[in-house]
Design a protein around this nucleic acid. Structure first.
Length: 687
RNA sequence: GGCGAUGUAGCUCAGUCGGUUAGAGCAACGGCUUCAUAAGCCGUGCGUCGGUGGUUCGAGUCCACUCAUCGCUACCA
């Protein structure tokens, strides 16, 4: 805690793909932490870079018919734009394909060699003679040697679960060229991590550098037996750095990627007149890595081992987070839940996502779930309804007069919230953002209760109370600003807007400790919009990719007709069967096919969409359906639905509903309208 | 198959070294308010703390077993 400098990294995004909402968990988490440290007055830099090497990049560049350097330059530009759009503020964003990185790789490699950690061995691998390249497991397909299932990948069988080497496949085929691969032996270089076993045992199990789950995982998984040698070379052709003392070999991408942290820092140092040694070889510098749990091994065993052997500082802490699920499921391109950062930004405010992730993130590596209806609800309720609302409830009342010259008595509200600052800071420090957000919202609740109790709108009506009115508003506006200070790491834009309103920028955490008085305010402007669900839905809709019937997908997807249904009984348990009814009972209900001819938003309604449906001919009905969270009007117009046509009309707040649209599902966003097979016409009765 | 994490109110989660009638936010329901982006305030929660068995004067909290979910892994990690 007392060290002078702090270096923070997020994992280097791979240049083979665009940034999506899953990646952003990490960058937002890290950015919040860095902004927090800076706000607290720490000397802290945030370093990142694009990870650019490897077979995947090489193959893709070939497919696109252009040099790798062009591909990675384009991708880097896209990454940086996405990050900037989400207010992720790196101090430096470099690339692993940089001369500084090559220099460092050579130097560190030299240290590893000198320490006697490198050995050489022959590895037999499949080679694609047409593409002229060795093939990683996932680039080979063939028949499973165990169950004879065809079209299986080179590492294991999706049918019988057998594992094998790609060289064991029957009739192997390269997915790159379709050629039959041949076995070929090549010289590989290995780092003998086992020599560092004792060190890694001590470092990982000290309880100081890793979350306890991670330490347990490593202990149970790797450290209980000898550590395997790590294959860090790849024979040409390969896009990467050539190994100087091993002609024809390149460093495996995972060797030079983490070194990119140092190289990128080096670039930053050059631009800012700093010494790299102060940041990577000084006990006065804390180094914090933020990563996802999928790359735990590299950052907690291999990387510390390399740093140790090469004489660099070890990470102070490796902060590991879980994955993002959307509505409890893995992100899916076909469902449109793998939303690109750029797509999100076309429709929604980045502050929403920053706050939502913050409200979900804790210090452990649990997965976090993006629930789209909760997302909208939380932003509306917490940020718009509670925080921003404080300013819009009071700012107008002090137009022209400004804030009181002295801070009035407020029953200890400001002081209590100022005191809460330490607890909030501690939560941020421990990466327990969800706790920090909860604490902040408690303060917002207290402030809103104060507004209600003092009723400034009543004071306004009585000219004798105008001094008191100014006092009340001074209190509320200061409480609002205090919240903005606490939220600054998460919502830098709100903090800026707050600065404009008060004409005093938020610069430090301690700005939360003293109220502002005797100043004029700028004209109040809306600070944040409510979440438009239509835009959320549209974003999902536009993110849907119909899976191309490529050979890859065909192998993974089960043949639809042959796959046995494995539906859970949850739905039935949630809503058990109703008592038996007779055919006469059922006949009372007149279900009809109808066409939605008009679907309209009911802005005042939380759940309803107003539908005009046609039963054929001139017969139309107006029906209000509680499906707003699940459908947009645009999705509904023109489609066929099944309605209860003889339901007694019901007067609702927004008009008369003359029927009911049938749907299944639990409600909320889980509403699935009933459709009919093609051929049915509006007016047809359901028997 | 191995390992790990999780399983507490409709939803998201808190529950510190085991200790009195198990908590919060959101949703829902009832009431109030109208300054504010239909925002806000007050009130309402008999939940088998996944299950079974055990340790204990006492367990959501410890132990064993078990079920479910998720993740990692299964010799180029």
């Amino acid at each position: 805690m007392s060290s002078k400098r702090m270096l923070v990294t997020a994992a280097l995004p791979y240049a083979n793909g665009h940034i999506h909402l899953g990646h952003l968990v990490e960058y937002i988490q890290t950015d919040i932490w860095v902004r927090f440290q800076k706000l607290r007055g720490r000397r802290c830099i945030f370093i990142c870079a694009d990870d650019t090497h490897g077979t995947a990049i090489m193959i893709r560049a070939r497919q696109e018919g252009r040099p790798e350097t062009e591909l990675i330059a384009d991708m880097q530009a896209a990454h940086e734009k996405d990050f900037a759009g989400f207010d992720i503020a790196f101090d430096h964003y470099g690339s692993t394909n940089a001369p500084e990185n090559y220099e460092l790789c050579k130097q560190i490699w030299g240290s590893l060699s000198k320490a006697g950690l490198v050995r050489e061995d022959d590895v037999e691998q499949l080679f694609d003679p047409e593409a002229g390249t060795f093939l990683a497991d996932r680039f080979v397909k063939g028949t499973c040697p165990s169950c004879k299932s065809v079209g299986e990948y080179g590492d294991n069988c999706s049918k019988c679960g057998a594992t094998y080497a790609p060289t064991d496949l029957i009739d192997p085929v390269s997915t790159l060229s379709g050629a039959t691969p041949v076995k070929r032996s090549a010289k590989h270089l290995f780092v003998q991590l086992e020599q560092l076993h004792a060190f890694l045992d001590a470092w990982t199990q000290s309880g100081e550098h890793l979350q306890s789950e991670v330490a347990n995982y490593l202990k149970g998984h790797f450290l209980g037996k000898p550590l395997r040698d790590w294959d860090v070379s790849r024979p040409e052709p390969y896009f990467g750095f050539p190994i100087p003392d091993s002609p024809g070999n390149y460093w495996y991408v995972w060797f030079d990627a983490p070194i990119g942290y140092i190289a990128s820092t080096h670039q930053w140092c050059k631009r800012n007149g700093e010494q790299l040694e102060d940041w990577w070889k000084s006990s006065d510098t804390e180094i914090h890595h933020f990563i996802g749990k999928d790359i735990t091994y590299f950052h907690t065993l291999f990387w510390p081992g390399v740093l140790k052997a090469a004489g660099y500082s070890l990470p102070t802490f490796v902060h590991i987070h879980g994955f993002l699920t959307v509505d409890r499921e893995k992100m899916s391109k076909s469902k449109g839940t793998q939303v690109r950062a750029s797509k999100y930004l076309e429709h929604l405010d980045p502050s929403y996502l920053r706050y939502y992730y913050a409200s979900k993130l804790g210090p452990r590596l649990d997965d976090i779930d993006l629930n789209l209806s909760e997302f909208a609800q939380k932003i509306d309720s917490d940020l718009v309804g509670k925080v921003v609302n404080l300013a819009s409830r009071t700012a107008r009342f002090v137009d022209g007069v400004g804030l009181a010259s002295e801070y009035p008595h407020d029953g200890g509200l400001f002081a209590a919230a100022a005191a809460a600052g330490e607890k909030i800071a501690e939560a941020y420090e421990q990466c327990d953002y969800s706790r920090a957000m909860r604490l902040i919202m408690e303060l917002a609740d207290a402030a809103n209760a104060f507004v209600d109790n003092t009723a400034p709108w009543t004071l306004k009506k009585d000219p004798n109370q105008h001094v008191r009115l100014q006092e009340v508003c001074t209190i509320v506006l200061n409480l609002f600003r205090q919240l903005c200070v606490y939220l600054t790491p998460v919502l830098p834009r709100l903090a800026q807007q707050c600065g404009r309103l008060f004409q005093v920028d938020i610069k430090a955490w301690d700005d939360s400790q003293k109220p502002l008085c005797g100043i004029q305010l700028s004209k109040f402007e809306h600070l944040m919009q409510r979440v438009d669900l239509a835009k959320v839905n549209q974003m999902i809709e536009e993110s849907k990719e119909t899976p191309a019937p490529s050979t890859n997908d065909a192998a993974v997807a089960p043949a639809s007709s042959a796959a046995p249904a494995t539906d859970s009984g949850d739905a039935l348990l949630a809503e058990p069967l109703a008592p038996t009814c007779t055919i006469e009972d059922f006949a009372k209900v007149d279900l009809r096919v109808a066409r939605v001819i008009k679907a309209e938003e009911v802005p005042e309604a939380k759940k309803l969409i107003k539908l005009t449906v046609s039963l054929g001919g001139d017969t139309t009905r107006t029906v209000f359906a509680g499906i707003k969270a699940a459908y947009t009007p645009a999705q509904l117009e023109g489609r066929l639905v099944v309605i209860v046509a003889n339901l007694q009309p019901r007067q609702m707040k927004f008009g008369l509903s003359e029927g009911m649209v049938t749907a299944a599902g639990a409600g909320g966003t889980e509403v699935f309208l009933l459709g009919v097979d093609s051929g049915a016409k509006p007016g047809h009765r359901v028997h």
